[in-house]
Computed example of a mutant assay.
Amino acid sequence: MSDARAGSGQTRQEVDILLVEDNPGDVRLTKEAFTDGAIDNTLHVVTDGKEALNFLHQRDEYADAACPDLVLLDLNLPKKSGEEVLEEIRGDEDLQRLPVIILTSSEAQEDVLRSYELQANAYLTKPVDPDAFLDTIQTFEEFWLRVVRLPPCDRTDGG
């Protein structure tokens, strides 16, 4: 893995992020925010829940996928919902410690509660305003990629 898991307060070298998002506009804004940020990162993008699980388990076209340092997960996804993806991650011994941050447009209290019941590490609501969205991603980056110490990848199937 990368040196992204250096101790708190240390400069991180590179971070692999899996973005699970089906809205092309939100993908574009997220990429823009990370490009403008100070942390070197690789942003892997998948557009549905089934694809996310294939990426995480290195299945099909993702056989050589990197083990991400964290996942940004939308709740409203085709094929498999973000809630189902989170539930599967938390039920998998090799993935259960992977930090998963919900990044969704839903402000519904039941979505917030259910996400935390399924052990999401954080719940971020996407602002509608593009500038506010960029600010949210940059604040996320500052905290999760500069302050937080991330766990090592435990995936035993090559990641």
Rank of each mutant, 00 (worst) to 15 (best):
C153W: 01
L124K: 02
G37V: 12
R97G: 15
L134W: 13
D157V: 15
A108I: 11
D129F: 09
T104D: 01
D129H: 10
E88C: 13
D157K: 13
L56E: 01
D135Y: 15
F34D: 08
R146M: 12
A132E: 13
L103A: 03
A63T: 09
D36Q: 07
A108K: 05
T104K: 04
R90V: 10
V148A: 09
P127E: 03
L118S: 06
R114T: 05
C153N: 04
I102A: 01
A120E: 02
M1I: 11
V112S: 06
L73R: 05
P78D: 12
M1N: 15
R90W: 09
N41F: 02
P130V: 11
E117S: 14
K79V: 09
F55L: 05
C153Y: 04
A33C: 14
L86I: 13
I102E: 00
A65P: 07
P130F: 12
V20R: 00
A52M: 09
A108M: 08
D40C: 10
I101Q: 03
V27M: 05
L18Q: 01
A65G: 11
L150D: 01
A33K: 05
G9H: 08
R5C: 02
N121Q: 07
N23R: 08
I102K: 00
Q58R: 14
E107K: 11
L29G: 01
T11K: 06
Q58S: 11
V147N: 14
C67E: 03
A65N: 05
V112W: 07
V128C: 11
D22T: 06
A108F: 11
T104A: 01
H57M: 14
Y116A: 05
Q10I: 07
D74Q: 08
A6D: 12
A38W: 13
I17V: 13
L72Y: 00
N76Y: 13
E110G: 10
A108E: 12
I102N: 00
L75T: 02
P151M: 06
D74E: 07
E142V: 09
E141L: 15
A4T: 12
D26L: 12
F133N: 01
D36F: 12
T156W: 15
A63Y: 10
Q109G: 06
Y123Q: 13
K50P: 04
V85F: 02
G7W: 00
R28K: 08
L29P: 01
V71A: 03
Y62W: 09
E21C: 07
E142W: 12
R90N: 13
E110C: 14
L19M: 14
E14C: 08
L70T: 01
L103C: 07
L118T: 05
E61C: 11
